[in-house]
Amino acid sequence: MSSLRSTVAVIRKDVQSELRTRYALNALLMFVVTAVATILFALRSDQPTSTVLAGMYWVVVFFTAMSSLSRIFVSEEERGTTMTLQLVASPAVVYFGKLVFNTLLTLSMTVAVTILYTLVFSTFFVIQTVSIFVITVLLGSLGFASAATIIAAIVAKANTRGTLYPVLSFPILIVLLITVMNATAKALDGEALSAALGDFQVLTGYFLAMTAGSYLLFDYVWKD
């Protein structure tokens, strides 16, 4: 119970800090806008298929995530506050706090991308099966944040961080990317909810396995 309250306190700290510095949020929003604009230039007036649209949707989310989700641990490491957190909180509390925060960030990304896509591709980005889309985005964001959080913790401890984050994340996220793209295409094509049940199982399994694994391994990464 007290760990739960501590976790909430960690999340509150990160949210407050984010609202004050706007470090991740501003970069994230600009990135989404730039990426969608680039896709718009590339497509001109061609009409993409639902598979291509679903793919592009998650490509934008993936690269936006790569530009902002690693901040969560790198910023603590750069400012020297890692030790402060270690003194006041157990590794599990820190891990789940950061996981929830990254999930919130990923969800806000998907909301931003969805709104933009609906506005600029109004003629062909039409979500026909809303239930599939919502569930895919929720489960996908959870899985995304889970993998991104443990990789961010690893990258924060490396000496040369540079381009390491996408390099380490991509192989881990491929299964998830293929699945969410698959399910999103189904939502755009207007397939029945039952058609995506298999995808949901994969996404749920991915999130649970990744989170359990990260929880067990986080101590080794977090403690020097």
Binding site: S2, S3, R5, S6, A9, L85, V88, A89, V93
Partner: peptide, 8 residues
């Protein structure tokens, strides 16, 4: 905030 995290 630090005492809130610690005390839970």
């Amino acid at each position: 905030l630090l005492s809130r995290i610690r005390a839970g």
